[in-house]
Amino acid sequence: MSIGVTQWLALRHRLHHARQWIWATALAWSAGLLVFTAFATPLWQPGQSTLLVAAIGVAGGLLMAATMAAVTGAFLVRILRAQ
């Protein structure tokens, strides 16, 4: 939530509904972490090679980033339309 608060400090003078950005980033992080966990946890198994563990982590990270971008993007469109 600290990232959302920091970004809100920059946005609050430009966007009327900028306060929603705090919750948007909190929701985006939560959704991203959920996607990462749901994807990576079942794939990681004891005894796997370091390369495979890293590949699963990278793929999970990319899915997490895409999820966060989708959530924050949707909120940004909503906030801008409310202007």
Rank of each mutant, 00 (worst) to 15 (best):
T41M: 13
L11S: 05
F75H: 02
V77T: 02
V77C: 00
M64A: 12
V5K: 12
L63K: 11
V77I: 04
A10P: 00
Q48L: 14
V71L: 06
G4H: 09
A40C: 08
V58S: 08
G57L: 06
A10Y: 10
A59W: 04
A59I: 15
F39C: 08
L51N: 09
A24E: 09
V5E: 13
A26W: 03
P46D: 15
A38H: 08
L27A: 15
A66Y: 04
F36Q: 13
S49C: 04
T6P: 00
P46E: 15
R19V: 04
L15I: 13
Q45I: 05
L33T: 03
L43N: 04
P42M: 12
T25K: 10
Q83L: 01
A74H: 01
L27Y: 00
L51F: 09
Q7E: 14
T25W: 03
L63W: 10
F36L: 14
A38C: 10
A10F: 11
L33G: 15
I3F: 09
F39I: 12
I3W: 10
V58I: 15
G57V: 06
R78Y: 00
L52V: 12
S49T: 15
V71C: 02
A66K: 06
W29V: 13
T67E: 12
V58W: 14
L9K: 08
I79G: 01
L43Y: 05
T6D: 10
V53W: 05
A55I: 08
W23P: 00
L63C: 11
V77G: 01
M1Q: 05
W44H: 08
S49L: 08
W21I: 07
L27W: 01
G47E: 14
A74W: 05
A10G: 11
A40W: 03
A82D: 07
G60F: 06
Q48T: 06
R14G: 08
Q48F: 02
W21C: 05
A74Q: 01
R14I: 05
Q45M: 13
F39K: 07
A59Y: 03
A28M: 11
G47M: 12
I79N: 01
M64K: 15
V35G: 07
W21M: 10
S30Q: 01
